[in-house]
Amino acid sequence: MTEPTRITDLKDLKAALQLAIGVELSTIPVYLTGLYSIEEGRNTDAAQTIRSVVMEEMLHMTLAANVLNALGEVPSPEPVDFQDHRNLSPIPAYPLDSPLISGIGTLELLPLTPQAVDSFVRIEHPLHGAATLSDIPVEPGGFRTIGEFYDAVDAALSDPAICPDDIFAPVRQIPDSDYYGGAGHVIEVKDRATARAAVLKIIDQGEGLPEEYLRLPAKTVTDADRLGSGWQMYSHYARFRELQTGRRFRTDQSADQNPEGSMLLVDYSAVQPALYTPRNGESDGSPEGSALDTFDLAYSQLVDSLYRAFAGEPTKDVDPLERNADRERPSLRRAVHAMYALKNTAIALMRTPNPAKPGHTLCPRFSYVPPGGDRDKLVQHVEGRGGQYR
């Protein structure tokens, strides 16, 4: 079997962490499309499961950004060079075939269907559904699995020859107080130990789960992985396996078994029949095209907001629950609020009939349009249509 790719210098380590932010981002639209397709008030257990995973993916992005900042590099959506790969974009475009991680397969935007849930499980499985690691082909400078990728990041962080002790500094750190809505905590990175702890948290909660963890109790939960409500945030893989099989894990079962606990029924008929169509140039000028453009603009601005937060750009955070609500702080909270606001636009799309495909509705494209000429055109078009689909 080909030896795993190793990260051997600081330049590649920084590029890998830029791409790690993108790896975590790439799963969020996949899960949100399934979540937003659920009819209001239906499949509440499935919705809670998917929502909890999405919020933890936001945590993982933040952890990777904190590590990158501590190494003196500002998180950026710009393409990077890594190993034999040139101009790898951290920002996903769907359908996505990762040039970095071969085993993950094609990431598609689908409503909540058995096929979609199968893809959730494949993403979070340590081997992405393969029987053995050797069954997964790999390109030079790439990785078979997300776990292999994070192992290489952790190994590089552990090596003083790659990142000496004096390179770590607690700069542009997102504080734990800015994260909410999911399990786990933001780790502010100040040294090698906290950098590795941040990467380990990503591995433990979700993608990167070591294969041997499948033989541990499926509902392994630490105090750090509980919500105040008592909701147990065990691994993403185990949570999605419960959706896939329609049953909860018993507390005495391991993650590699079929769940045999209480029923967790998913009604796939209570889902909007959204059909994804990729962005293809400028809008066709139709009301439906304008609605899709409005969503793409909102999503692009959300991604920009996340990166501004990760880059430590302060904003006035007006929070009536805080005494010093007018202070300047990193804007992660605003970005999270924007993600929640995006839900309404997505739901409106998924209730709009697709004129080109009878029996289907529109589907959010989660198409990122970079700032510049194309973004300016998109803004002008959306504003020219009144800023929303009417």
Rank of each mutant, 00 (worst) to 15 (best):
L10S: 15
P358F: 15
L71M: 07
V153E: 04
E3V: 13
N280L: 05
K357A: 15
R215A: 14
L332W: 01
P355T: 04
P353G: 05
S254L: 07
M55F: 05
L209W: 07
D319G: 01
D97C: 07
K343P: 01
G22V: 08
W231S: 11
D225T: 04
A161N: 09
A298E: 08
L71F: 04
T8K: 12
T8P: 09
I123S: 13
G141M: 12
Y31I: 00
V382K: 03
L13S: 12
A155S: 06
D81E: 14
I123A: 11
R365S: 06
E260D: 13
R327E: 09
M55A: 11
A335S: 04
R248D: 12
A338L: 14
D374K: 12
T251D: 15
L332T: 05
V271I: 09
Q115G: 11
R172W: 00
L133E: 10
R334L: 08
V303L: 10
R279I: 00
L321I: 08
D135S: 10
L332A: 04
R334T: 01
T315W: 07
A169S: 15
V74F: 02
P90Y: 02
V199F: 15
K316H: 12
R334I: 01
L10V: 15
R241S: 10
R86Q: 05
D166F: 08
T62C: 07
G285R: 13
L216H: 05
R196S: 14
E188P: 00
I347N: 14
V186D: 02
L302Q: 11
S305L: 11
G129P: 00
L264H: 02
M61A: 04
I187M: 01
S76A: 13
A346M: 05
K377I: 10
Y237P: 13
I50T: 09
L63M: 03
V54T: 02
V80D: 12
E3H: 14
R215I: 04
D12K: 03
T49A: 06
I203W: 15
I50K: 08
V80F: 11
D159Q: 03
L110I: 08
T294Q: 10
R375H: 12
L342Q: 10
L110F: 11
G72Q: 10
K316G: 06
V379Q: 10
I167C: 14
G386T: 02
S76L: 11
A255I: 05
S300E: 05
N324W: 15
F295N: 01
E40C: 10
G228Y: 09
D165W: 08
P77Y: 04
A298C: 06
C163W: 00
P170L: 13
T294E: 09
V153Y: 00
S102R: 03
